[in-house]
Amino acid sequence: MLAEDKIKRINELSKKSKTTGLSIEEAKEQTLLRKEYLETFRSSMRNTIEHVKVIDPEGNDVTPEKVKKARDDKYLN
């Protein structure tokens, strides 16, 4: 998860961009922070999906093969 101070800074820059506008340096900072946020989010989501096990109402494991393969690849390497 992204540090709270970085999320706060993203929100500050977003608010400023809507009101007074950003300087070139601030716009670059905003871009880098957003990129870092998205990378962190995607990594977290990928990790969550890799640990999901789907069970149908009859108790059968119906986890998609793609998810099983990704999980196996991650832990076998």
Score class of each variant (00 low, 15 high):
residue 50 E to K: 15
residue 17 S to A: 15
residue 13 L to Y: 08
residue 11 N to R: 03
residue 6 K to I: 08
residue 30 Q to I: 04
residue 8 K to P: 00
residue 70 A to S: 06
residue 53 K to S: 05
residue 54 V to R: 01
residue 3 A to G: 03
residue 55 I to K: 01
residue 25 E to H: 00
residue 63 T to I: 09
residue 50 E to G: 14
residue 40 T to W: 00
residue 40 T to R: 05
residue 43 S to G: 08
residue 4 E to D: 13
residue 63 T to C: 05
residue 34 R to H: 03
residue 76 L to R: 14
residue 38 L to Q: 09
residue 40 T to E: 11
residue 23 S to M: 01
residue 14 S to E: 12
residue 43 S to W: 01
residue 8 K to Q: 04
residue 74 K to V: 06
residue 52 V to S: 04
residue 60 N to R: 12
residue 28 K to I: 09
residue 61 D to R: 03
residue 29 E to R: 02
residue 69 K to R: 06
residue 18 K to D: 05
residue 45 M to D: 09
residue 70 A to E: 05
residue 11 N to A: 05
residue 9 R to W: 00
residue 25 E to F: 01
residue 50 E to Q: 12
residue 24 I to S: 15
residue 29 E to K: 02
residue 5 D to T: 11
residue 51 H to P: 01
residue 26 E to A: 00
residue 52 V to A: 05
residue 68 K to V: 14
residue 5 D to V: 07
residue 77 N to I: 15
residue 57 P to A: 03
residue 74 K to P: 00
residue 60 N to V: 06
residue 55 I to P: 02
residue 68 K to T: 12
residue 7 I to L: 14
residue 13 L to K: 08
residue 13 L to S: 06
residue 21 G to C: 10
residue 65 E to C: 00
residue 49 I to E: 02
residue 39 E to S: 07
residue 43 S to T: 07
residue 12 E to Q: 15
residue 67 V to N: 04
residue 50 E to F: 07
residue 33 L to E: 12
residue 2 L to Y: 02
residue 51 H to G: 10
residue 21 G to N: 03
residue 69 K to Y: 01
residue 18 K to Q: 14
residue 25 E to A: 14
residue 59 G to S: 10
residue 30 Q to Y: 15
residue 49 I to V: 15
residue 42 R to S: 09
residue 32 L to A: 12
residue 56 D to R: 08
residue 46 R to P: 00
residue 60 N to D: 10
residue 43 S to Q: 09
residue 18 K to P: 01
residue 52 V to F: 10
residue 20 T to F: 07
residue 52 V to D: 00
residue 75 Y to F: 15
residue 42 R to Q: 11
residue 14 S to Y: 15
residue 24 I to H: 07
residue 58 E to L: 12
residue 5 D to M: 02
residue 34 R to W: 02
residue 50 E to L: 07
residue 68 K to F: 09
residue 64 P to Q: 01
residue 47 N to K: 09
residue 37 Y to L: 14
residue 10 I to T: 08
residue 56 D to M: 06
residue 65 E to S: 05
residue 63 T to K: 09
residue 17 S to N: 14
residue 10 I to H: 06
residue 67 V to S: 02
residue 5 D to F: 05
residue 67 V to W: 05
residue 20 T to E: 15
residue 50 E to M: 11
